[in-house]
């Protein structure tokens, strides 16, 4: 390890961190605009042209709002909980490949921070640690809504983590690696095309696996129709009922970070990551393709959010344990058998 490398990592992480924060701020704006568009309303349009400065205004408001620590709360856990939610949410981005590699300032720069043997398992691990923020927030607030919301939310997150993990195994059978960079490269143009034009993306090999992954991912991010933890009509705001000011913003942000993580994973694992036409000639295009694919997924998530009704809790658990988990096991038995006979 050289100082050069350390510097490169730090700069990359800094840049990604900055971009992520901006993206998350603007996702909240985009989400409200999409909601307005779907529900035939306007959405935020007062602050700046087209309401584009809305996130800035929101940020300032978050900072200067009163920070309330409820009398009954366990103070330290109450303070730690938002940090426990946002720290894991930030950590998974370092292994996601955003693009191939570009030449900048006369040196070759790969568009991912790092790669290692167990990258995918690292994302799963960091994601599973994210559940503590929810549990601690629910418990430490000492509020009935928070506690129930926290319990429901964490039970939901761990249930769907299983089918998420098991659906990924299908991709691993095809790709043969946990390293995301390798998985993306295997789906690239160098592997050739089917019938001369269909790219070798995993979605064509694992359509069932992708559907399971997609549904589990939606449940993992606690979004409608899986937003039971914050079912406004019954639990006020779920586990962050008692949170205000910047601490509320932190939960809000970590949910958007998770959204970006799972959509990046969907892109990377099933839709060829940064692959697309002409990236050999113009490497910068790879970055464009990646961002485009991720945003299409994010849009689909938002679209679903504003068109679907919410599940009932027993339906939610039944979907996770009785449909998605058996389906993912079946999917991987079939995949393994096919691979055995094809090879």
């Amino acid at each position: 390890m050289t100082t050069d490398q350390l510097l490169e990592w730090t700069i990359k992480i800094g840049v990604i961190f900055f971009i992520l924060l901006t993206t998350v701020a603007y996702l909240s704006y985009v989400e409200r605009r999409v909601a307005g568009w779907i529900q035939l309303r306007v959405g935020p349009n007062r602050v700046g042209p087209f309401g584009l400065l809305q996130p800035l205004a929101d940020g300032l408001k978050f900072i200067f709002k009163e920070d309330i620590i409820p009398r009954e709360a366990s103070k330290w856990l109450y303070l730690i909980a938002p940090a426990a939610a946002i720290i894991p949410a930030l950590m998974s981005f370092i292994v996601i490949p955003f693009g191939s590699s570009v030449t900048l300032f006369g040196r070759e720069i790969t568009l991912h921070v790092t790669r290692f043997d167990v990258a995918l398992l690292y994302i799963l691990g960091v994601g599973s640690v994210g559940v503590y923020g929810v549990m601690l927030a629910g418990w430490s607030s000492n509020n009935k809504y928070s506690l129930l919301g926290g319990l429901r939310s964490s039970a939901q997150m761990i249930s769907y983590e299983l089918s998420l993990g098991a659906s990924i195994v299908g991709v691993l059978l095809v790709a043969g690696s946990l390293d995301l960079v390798t998985i993306v490269e295997a789906q690239g143009a160098t592997s050739g095309y089917w019938l001369g034009f269909i790219p070798k993306w995993n979605i064509f090999l694992q359509p069932i696996g992708f559907i399971i992954f997609f549904l589990s991912a939606m449940a993992e991010t606690n979004r409608v129709p899986f937003d039971l933890p914050e079912a406004e009509a019954e639990l006020v705001a779920g586990y962050f009922t008692e949170y205000s000011s910047m601490k509320f913003a932190m939960f809000f942000m970590s949910e958007y970070f998770h959204l970006i993580t799972v959509t990046s994973m969907a892109t990377t694992l099933y839709f060829g990551g940064w692959n697309g036409p002409f990236i050999a000639e113009y490497p910068f295009l790879s970055l464009v393709y990646f961002v485009l694919k991720v945003f299409i997924f994010i849009f689909i998530f938002m679209w679903i959010r504003f068109t679907m009704p919410r599940f009932r809790y027993d339906q939610l658990m039944a979907l996770g344990w009785k449909v998605l988990l058996p389906a993912s096991i079946l999917n991987l038995i079939v995949t393994a058998t096919v691979i055995l006979f094809v090879n």
Partner: peptide
């Protein structure tokens, strides 16, 4: 190392904390 996080930090201790919360 990764399994240590996934299983111990991500599952076993979740169970512990669940029990304590319950």
């Amino acid at each position: 190392a990764a399994v240590q996080i996934v299983v111990y930090a991500g599952a076993i201790l979740v169970l512990f904390i669940f029990v304590i919360m319950l």
